[in-house]
Amino acid sequence: MATRSRKPFDLRAQPGFLFIAMICFFMLYLPIVTLVVFAFNAGESVAVWQGFSTRWFQSAWHNSQVQEAAWRTLYVATIAATGAAIMATMAALATTRTAGYRGLTFKYAFINQPLMVPEIVTAVALLIVFSRFKVWSGYTGIGYVLLAHTAFCIPFAYLPIRARLESMDLTLERAAADLYATPWNAFRRVTLPLLWPGILAGYMLAFVISLDDVVITEFVKSGGQETLPTYMLGQLRRVVTPEINAISSVFLALSILIVTLFFIVSRKRN
């Protein structure tokens, strides 16, 4: 019998595979690469190369509007990710540390709702509700944005935390209880330390999601509450300079950094 050099079904052996793969690859990355390249353009154009320069990074760095929006973005993302991680941890504990019951699947769906409902629908709904609130309470601060971000970040934080809890050996908690640990002590001394990588992963995922949200922020924010994405959107409507590319590139770098950390943390097992 002839020796088989390939597995019975090897996708790479199918006709046109390489072609399709290359198209996908270029469609995904060519625009991003172009964007980053033109961030270093010396000229005012985002399409015609006029030599290398870091002037747009400097100009963005010194732009007070960008600074303010950047700080607000980080502030919102930090608060929202923290809130979401806490809520998601509690939700994950409640949905995994229980015997299965009727309605549990419904609960999963309920928690994951923001993943399924079109973002624009949530945004419009929040706009209507919050505008009423603003009239009643007179409060127009950043709180609405924080609340909205926390809410839609919960399912993103929930998924890795729940996965971690489900893969955890339940007898460890039982052993803690057997060794005189009250439920709170068992959680503090056994469950939480083992769950920590999951919470951290959930936190970072939520952070990234909050970081680049445009739609909900745009609808919910009051005047003077620009985040970096909404600021960029606003700029695109006016004059487009490579400053936008520079901001985007830094943003991209930050996201890649966090996502990389997320993968490192979630791969770390005991």
Binding site: L172, A177, N270
Partner: peptide
């Protein structure tokens, strides 16, 4: 009584040692 109130301890089949 809950397990943490019983002066009884268990050796588990899979040992259930705390990995951290």
């Amino acid at each position: 009584l809950p397990p943490y109130k019983r002066p009884v301890n268990t050796v588990f089949q899979n040992y259930a040692l705390f990995p951290h």
